[in-house]
Simulated scan of single mutants.
Amino acid sequence: MPEEKQSATEGLERRNHELSVLNATARELNRSVRLDEALEFTLSQVAELLELETGWIWLLDEPSGEPYLAATRNLPPGLASDPRRMDGSSYCYCLDTYRRGDLDGAANVNVLACSRLADLVGGTGGLRYHASIPLYAGPKKLGVMNLASPGWRSLSGEELRLLYTIGDLLAIAIERSRLFDRSAHLGMMEERNRLAREIHDTIAQTLSATVLQLESAEALLEEDPCSPRAREALGRALSLTRQNLQEARRSVQDLRAAPLEGRPLAQALRVLVDRWEEESGVAARLKTVNGASPLPPRVEVALYRICQEALSNVARHARADRATVRLTVTPERALLSVEDDGVGFDPCRIPEGHYGITGMRERAASVGGTLEIESASGRGTTVRAGVPLKEG
């Protein structure tokens, strides 16, 4: 019959299309070692295949197990304009269900009401429900992929199986990307230790020898006190050399045990802020959004050092009663701000010799970011650093 033949033809064409998308997804995920590329490509392929235009992916941070937003596609305005609604630490029914193990197995790719959209009056783009695809590497939980569309429809058994297969491919790509990042991190640690040994064997050794020579010269001058100016000059040289030796040793220690070693940026900032509060006597607090989200090592170090310098400036110059550090991470951007309620200053009239602000700008620029300073006399100061996390 013509209708049956047409239906069979359409079914075959749909099946061929699904297989072509699956093959393209497998090729791309097998090629890429960059996690952000793998996640975004998968969202785009699934959206094209099932006409589910909106999606996002949660991953669980390996050290802490905390969820963070790793990728998004066409978020509705109510979620896109307020990163706090997409913070992994806020309540989420699908994530909580997944972490309890209730989304286990191919039988479900479940359809759930979205708790993040439930209390929004506007800005939802008509979204209320999404499919949740669990991501596993064997028994290990990796995260959840959510897919949504305003005109929600039930997914067929074939579509559910296809989503689960894509979830398996994505899980493999996630694990491979993380293994690649770990190997790169080990290489960085080896290089840092090599530099530490090099500094110790060159600069520190040379300065130690210089100190010995100067101490000998000082001892000889004690026998001939006829040259007080030489004694004073040698004393100053000895003091400066000892300071330089101490600085070289501090640099070696920084290289061997960086403050971020083994901790994500949010945890390192927590330690920094707590220690700074104790040392400065100024009340301080840290606020994070998606703080568990891992960042490239160079970005983490740059933002940490910017925060360190900004807090140091608050302690030295601001005469503040309170300081607040904020870290907000989205799949597109990392934002750090340090705000105080101190005396403020004119950012356009920075005295010569104050290199801290220049150093912060250079650190932000070194990772493709920008640094802005907002301040006025009597109105406190806010330092904002923003770093893009996507190329181009």
Rank of each mutant, 00 (worst) to 15 (best):
T42Q: 03
A70G: 02
T358Y: 10
Q267R: 14
G138K: 04
A283R: 12
G369C: 06
V273I: 00
P2S: 09
G143V: 00
Y68F: 15
M1Q: 13
Y129L: 14
L220F: 12
L135E: 00
G88H: 00
L112N: 08
E66P: 05
V211H: 06
L240F: 09
L260T: 03
A24C: 03
I306Y: 03
L79P: 01
A24N: 12
A173R: 02
Y164I: 05
Y93E: 14
T202F: 00
R194S: 12
V299W: 03
A148P: 03
D104G: 15
G157S: 05
Q243Y: 08
T202C: 01
A106F: 11
R116K: 12
K141V: 00
N110C: 13
G65N: 06
Q267V: 15
G65V: 02
R85D: 03
L335P: 03
S337L: 04
S227K: 11
M360C: 07
V46T: 07
N74D: 09
E247V: 11
A204V: 09
E4N: 10
L260R: 07
R85Q: 01
A70H: 04
R161H: 09
T241A: 11
V121Q: 14
A233R: 14
Q213M: 13
G122K: 11
E279W: 02
I133C: 09
Q253A: 15
D321M: 11
P63I: 01
P77W: 00
L371T: 03
R34M: 08
L69P: 07
L335M: 13
D224H: 12
P2N: 09
E374D: 11
C226R: 14
R326H: 12
A323T: 06
D321T: 14
D104C: 10
L295G: 08
E66T: 06
D96Y: 03
R229A: 14
L272M: 10
R361K: 15
T124P: 07
E247D: 09
E158G: 09
R231D: 07
S375Q: 05
G105I: 04
S251C: 09
R242V: 03
E372Y: 04
S132G: 10
E18Y: 11
R197A: 12
S64G: 04
G262R: 08
L43V: 01
T165K: 08
S81E: 13
Q205P: 02
V121S: 15
G55A: 05
E175V: 14
Y68M: 08
L142H: 05
M360I: 03
I203Q: 13
L336Y: 06
L69G: 05
E362I: 03
L195Q: 14
E51H: 13
L39H: 04
A320D: 00
C94H: 10
P76H: 08
L160D: 06
A148L: 08
L389T: 02
S44M: 08
G353M: 02
K390S: 15
E218P: 04
R15I: 07
D104R: 15
G105C: 01
D96E: 13
V33E: 10
P297R: 10
R128A: 13
V21Q: 14
Y129I: 10
Y129K: 13
D224R: 11
E362D: 11
S251W: 06
P264M: 00
W58M: 01
